[in-house]
Design a protein around this nucleic acid. Structure first.
Length: 848
RNA sequence: GGGUCGGUGGCGGAAUGGCAGACGCAGCGGACUUAAAAUCCGCCGGGUUGAAACCCGUGUGGGUUCGAAUCCCACCCGACCUACCA
C-alpha cells in the first residue's frame, strides 16, 4: 500500500470491503428510529450521466449523515425499466427490449457502485421483472375492483412519433408537444383505460398543506389540479335539450348574450340548423385538425361559427344564439359556456369579431379606469373588475368585489331558490390515461369477451407475461396485437373465445408504487396472488413506510409526484396502507449544466462524462465537487477547472493526517495556546457542519471542512509533533479523527482509508468502519471564543474595533466605545443623541 | 397574460437586520527546481495612496431603521413553470 493518495486503489478496495462486510444490507431494527431516504430511480438508458451523479451523491451524503446521527437508514436503488427507448432500440437494431434493458442495467449497476453510495442492493427492484409487474397488474385489478379504473371511448392525445397515446400530464407547452420527444400531439378517438385520479382532486389539493415539500412543487400541483368555485347552470335549447354550463361568474348570468359550445360538444349535431350544417362541419373539421398545425402564438383571433340554434337563458328567458368556437375546450368544465362579452375578455373579443350584442351588467366604480362607462357601447374592452350589479333583475344593486364575493353568493342563492342551478366546484385535473399502444410495458390484465364483455384476468393467473417473441412494427397499434398466442385466449368467465387487451400501461404506473416495492421486492415470487394479498411483507412495510425524505428533480412535479400521491390515497382506501401521503419530505435538486452554462445535450456537444472525471480525480472528488459548486437546489454549470480545488483539498487532508510532521519544533506555552485554538476551531466546525448537513447545505459544509483543514495545516508543526501523552497531542489526534468523521458522508472512501490508517492496531488489523461511527457532538463551551471583536460605529459607520471577553456588560461596552480615540475624533465635539449597544456585536454612537 | 424563484468581485458562491465578498477557481508576485509540472508562502472589488486613513460599492429608484445585500413599495433584467380554464 502506497503512502500517497491513489484514489483508484482505495476506492475499489473499500467498495469491495464494504460489500463483503455487508455494511449496507438492510435490517428492520425496532430499537432504532428508522429513516427511509429515497432518490428518484433511474431509467435504464444505459449510461449514468452527470445529472445522475448530481441527484444521487448528495442524496447519499445526506443518508450517510442520518445514519451516523443514529438512524437506521434505508437507501434503496432500482430501475425504471419499461418504456419506449428499449422498444425503439429493438426496432432499430433487432434486439429484444429485454436484452437491451438488462445489458443497460448491468452497466449502470457498475456505474452506480463507483459512486460509493450506501445503496441497499439487497432490496433492488427492476420494474420490467415479471415478479415486479405482476404486482403492477394486481394494483390495476384492485383499482378496477374499486371503480377507479375504467375504459372510455373519447378523443385523446396521440404522439405521432412515439406512436402512442399520452396522459394529459405528458403533453407540454403551448404547441402541446410530447414530453419525451417534443413532437406536437394530435387528437384521436380511441378506447382507452383511465384511472379516476379526479376522485381525489379535493384531497390531493388539501393534503399539500400536510407535507414538507418545496413551495414551487406545491404551487405547480395546485395550478394543475386547478380548483375553481362557481355555479353549474342549465340552459335549454329551443328544441328542449339541456345545456349544462359551469361559470365562476354566475353574477353576470343576466349579461349572457350568446352561448359557445366546444366543436366536439355532443349537442352540436342536434342543435345545428340545416342551413348552417356545412359551415359548422367545416369548423368542427378545422378544430379537429388544429393540433396538427403548428399554431403561432400571435394567431389568437377567435374563430367560430353560428349553429343556427338558440338557447333560453334560464335567469331571464332571453333567446340567445348558440355558436361553436375552438376557444371553448371540451376538456374543461362542461365544454359549453355562457358568453358574457361585457365582463369577459375572450367573450368580448369574440363578440366584436362576430358582431354579437354586448350587455352591461356590472357598473364599474366611478373612480376606476372604466368609471365613464354607462352603457355597453362605452366599453373599449370587457370590464371583469368590481362595481355594482345592474340590469340583472333580482340581484340588482349587489356589490361586485375584486375577489369573489357578495354578488356571486347572491346569484347562487337565487339560482338554488329558483331551481335554475347550484353552486359548484370545478377542477382542471383530468383522469389519468394509462393505455399505451406499445409493447415494452406492463400488460393490462383485461380480457374482452363477446358474450361477457370486459373481464378481469383472475388474480391467481397473474402475471400476464409479455411474450419473448413479439414483432416490433411501428404500426400505431400495440405489437401485442399481432402476437396471436398472446392475443387470443379463452374468457376466464365463460371459457369462450376472447381477446386480451393488447395495450400496455404507462410506465408512470410502475413508478407510482416503487417506493413500496423496495421494502420487499418481488414479494410472493412464483406464488399465485389473491385480491386480499399485501404486495409486501407487512412487518417490513410497517417499519419503513412512508418515505421520510425524497429527493429528485422538479420536472416530475405534475407527473410522477402527482400520480404516486393519487396511488397512495387509493391504496389507503383499499386498506393496503394506513397513511395518506407517500413522501413526507421532498427536496428538489437543481440541474447541472454544461461548462457553457447550457443544458447538457449531445447536439450542443457540452456533455460532461462523469466516468472520465472519476478516472482522473476519483469518485470522492467528483462527489465533493458536485456538492461544492453551490446550493444543491440551484444546480449550475460544470467547471472543469474548479474541480481541482476539491481534489487539492483531499490531497491536503491526506498529508495532514498521514504524513509524519517534522520533529517537534515548539513546546510549552506555544503548544498550549495552539491546542486551545484548535480545540475551539474543532467544536465550531462540528456545530457548523452538523447544521449544514442536516439542511442539505453541502457547499458551506465543505467550505467549513476546508477551513478546518487549513487550520490543521497551520498548527501541524506545533501540535502534530507534540509528545505523545500531552494534552496538545490528544487534541491534535481528536481533531484529525473528527475531521475524518465529518468528511465521511461526502468523501466516503478517502475518509475510510485514513480512518483505518489512523486506528490500525499494532498488529495491523482494521478497526470498525468510519461509516459505523457516531456523528461527533460539539461542546458549545469549547467552541466559545475567549475574546471577541466588538465593532464601534459612529452614525452607523465602522470607526473602531474593541477586543473584549464574550458577554461583556452593555454599560462597559458603551464606556469602552466612548473612550476610543478614533470615536472621539469622529465625534468632533458633537452631541451624543443615542447609543445602541448590541451585546457581543457592536456599539453604535449616534451623534449630530 | 398569470405564477414561482433569482440578480453580490474576472468566475462559482458566502453573509438573511449589525465588519460585504467566507470557501474555492482563475490571475499576479515570491520560494523550491538546470527547467517545467506539482507543492508551499503572499497579494487579489473600485478610487486614492509610498503607506495608512478616507471615499465609493450587493440590478435601478424610493421608503422603514441608530444601522439594509438582507425588510417594504415601484421598476428593470434573467431562469423555470403555466397558459383561450369559462
Amino acid at each position: 500500500m502506497s503512502d500517497r493518495y491513489i484514489h483508484k486503489e482505495i476506492e475499489t478496495k473499500w467498495q469491495k470491503s464494504w460489500d463483503e462486510q455487508g455494511l449496507y444490507t438492510t435490517t428492520e431494527d425496532p430499537d432504532r428510529p428508522k429513516w427511509y431516504a429515497l432518490t428518484m430511480l433511474p431509467y435504464t438508458s444505459g449510461d449514468l450521466h452527470t445529472g445522475h451523479w448530481y441527484a444521487m451523491t448528495p442524496s447519499d451524503a445526506a443518508a450517510r449523515f442520518r445514519r451516523m446521527s443514529g438512524h437506521n437508514v434505508f437507501f434503496p436503488i432500482g430501475f425504471d425499466a419499461f418504456g419506449l427507448p428499449a422498444e425503439n432500440a429493438a426496432i432499430k437494431s433487432n434486439v429484444h427490449p429485454q436484452e437491451w434493458t438488462y445489458t443497460n442495467v448491468e452497466r449502470m449497476q457498475g456505474q452506480l457502485r463507483r459512486m460509493g453510495a450506501m445503496w441497499a442492493w439487497d432490496r433492488e427492484a427492476i420494474s420490467c421483472d415479471p415478479e415486479y409487474y405482476k404486482w403492477s397488474q394486481w394494483f390495476f385489478l384492485r383499482l378496477y375492483d374499486s371503480g377507479l379504473a375504467y375504459r372510455e371511448f373519447a378523443p385523446v392525445d396521440w404522439c405521432p412519433s412515439c406512436n402512442t397515446t399520452l396522459a394529459r400530464e405528458q403533453v407540454w407547452g403551448e404547441d402541446r408537444h410530447c414530453e419525451r420527444c417534443d413532437t406536437p400531439v394530435i387528437k384521436k378517438d380511441l378506447n382507452q383505460w383511465k384511472f379516476r385520479i379526479t376522485n381525489y382532486s379535493e384531497e390531493l389539493l388539501a393534503d399539500l398543506d400536510n407535507i414538507d415539500w418545496p413551495e414551487p412543487v406545491k404551487v405547480m400541483q395546485t395550478n394543475w389540479i386547478g380548483r375553481s368555485e362557481g355555479a353549474q347552470v342549465t340552459f335549454t335549447t329551443e328544441t328542449g335539450a339541456p345545456i349544462e354550463i359551469f361559470t365562476t361568474r354566475p353574477d353576470t348570468l343576466w349579461g349572457a348574450t350568446f352561448m359557445v359550445l366546444a366543436p366536439e360538444h355532443p349537442l352540436v349535431d342536434e342543435i345545428t340548423t340545416d342551413d348552417r350544417r356545412d359551415a359548422v362541419a367545416q369548423c368542427v373539421d378545422q378544430a379537429s385538425r388544429l393540433d396538427e398545425i403548428a399554431r403561432t402564438a400571435e394567431d389568437k383571433e377567435k374563430t367560430g361559427v353560428f349553429t343556427g340554434g338558440y338557447a333560453i337563458n334560464p335567469v331571464n328567458n332571453e333567446r340567445i344564439p348558440v355558436w361553436i368556437a375552438d376557444y371553448v375546450l371540451m376538456g374543461y368544465g362542461t365544454g359549453a359556456i355562457m358568453a358574457v362579452p361585457g365582463h369577459d375578455e375572450r367573450d368580448f373579443e369574440f363578440a366584436k369579431t362576430h358582431d354579437l350584442p354586448i350587455q352591461l351588467v356590472v357598473q364599474p366604480p366611478p373612480d376606476s379606469e372604466a368609471g365613464h362607462v354607462r352603457t355597453a357601447g362605452d366599453l373599449e374592452s370587457a370590464w371583469p373588475g368590481p362595481g355594482t350589479v345592474i340590469n340583472s333583475g333580482p340581484i340588482n344593486g349587489t356589490p361586485v368585489g375584486k375577489e369573489k364575493g357578495e354578488s356571486v353568493k347572491a346569484a347562487i342563492a337565487w339560482l338554488e331558490q329558483n331551481g335554475k342551478g347550484e353552486g359548484a366546484v370545478n377542477f382542471r385535473l383530468r383522469d389519468w390515461l394509462i393505455s399505451r399502444q406499445r409493447m415494452w410495458g406492463t400488460p393490462i390484465p383485461m380480457i374482452h369477451c363477446d358474450s361477457c364483455g370486459t373481464v378481469p384476468v383472475p388474480y391467481a393467473d397473474l402475471p400476464v407475461r409479455l411474450p419473448d417473441d413479439a414483432q416490433f412494427k411501428p404500426t400505431g397499434e400495440s405489437p401485442l396485437n399481432y402476437h396471436e398466442a398472446f392475443r387470443y385466449v379463452n374468457c376466464p368467465s365463460c371459457s369462450g373465445d376472447a381477446e386480451r387487451e393488447t395495450d400496455t400501461m404507462d410506465t408512470f404506473m410502475c413508478s407510482s408504487w416503487y417506493q413500496y416495492a423496495y421494502v420487499d421486492p418481488y414479494h410472493k415470487a412464483g406464488e399465485p396472488l389473491a385480491a386480499g394479498d399485501t404486495p409486501w411483507d407487512s412487518a417490513r412495510g410497517q417499519y419503513w413506510l412512508p418515505v421520510d425524505q425524497y429527493t429528485g428533480g422538479i420536472e416530475h412535479a405534475t407527473m410522477h409526484l402527482l400520480y404516486t400521491r393519487f396511488f397512495t390515497k387509493a391504496l389507503r382506501d383499499m386498506g393496503v396502507v394506513d397513511f395518506d401521503e407517500p413522501m413526507l419530505r421532498l427536496f428538489n435538486q437543481g440541474i447541472i449544466l454544461g461548462p457553457d452554462g447550457e443544458r447538457m445535450s449531445k447536439s450542443r456537444g457540452n456533455v460532461v462524462n462523469p466516468d472520465e472525471y472519476v478516472d482522473k480525480y476519483g469518485a470522492d472528488t467528483v462527489r465533493g465537487y458536485l456538492m461544492f459548486i453551490g446550493p444543491w437546489e440551484h444546480g449550475g454549470p460544470w467547471d472543469p477547472s474548479a474541480i481541482e480545488g476539491v481534489s487539492r483539498f483531499l490531497y491536503r487532508v491526506w498529508s495532514v493526517v498521514n504524513d509524519e510532521p517534522h520533529a517537534g519544533t515548539a513546546g510549552g506555552a506555544a503548544a498550549n495556546d495552539a491546542a486551545r485554538g484548535l480545540e475551539r476551531k474543532l467544536h465550531q466546525t462540528i456545530l457548523k457542519v452538523s447544521e449544514d448537513m442536516a439542511g442539505f447545505r453541502f457547499n458551506t459544509a465543505i467550505a467549513a471542512l476546508m477551513e478546518f483543514n487549513n487550520h490543521l495545516v497551520s498548527v501541524k508543526q506545533t501540535l502534530g509533533a507534540a509528545e505523545a501523552g500531552t494534552a496538545a497531542a490528544a487534541i491534535w489526534r481528536e481533531s484529525i479523527r473528527t475531521l475524518l468523521l465529518m468528511m465521511a458522508p461526502i468523501f466516503p472512501h478517502v475518509s475510510e482509508e485514513l480512518w483505518q490508517r489512523l486506528g490500525r492496531g499494532n498488529n495491523g488489523s482494521d478497526v470498525a468502519s468510519v461509516h459505523l461511527q457516531a456523528w461527533p457532538q460539539a461542546d458549545p463551551e469549547k467552541a466559545r471564543e475567549d475574546e471577541i471583536t466588538i465593532v464601534v460605529q459612529v452614525n452607523g459607520r465602522v470607526r473602531d474595533k474593541l477586543s473584549v471577553a464574550p458577554s461583556t456588560a452593555e454599560d462597559k461596552l458603551e464606556k469602552l466605545a466612548l473612550a476610543s480615540n478614533n470615536v472621539k475624533r469622529w465625534m468632533d465635539g458633537k452631541q451624543v443623541r443615542k447609543i445602541v449597544v448590541v451585546p457581543d456585536k457592536l456599539v453604535n454612537i449616534v451623534i449630530g
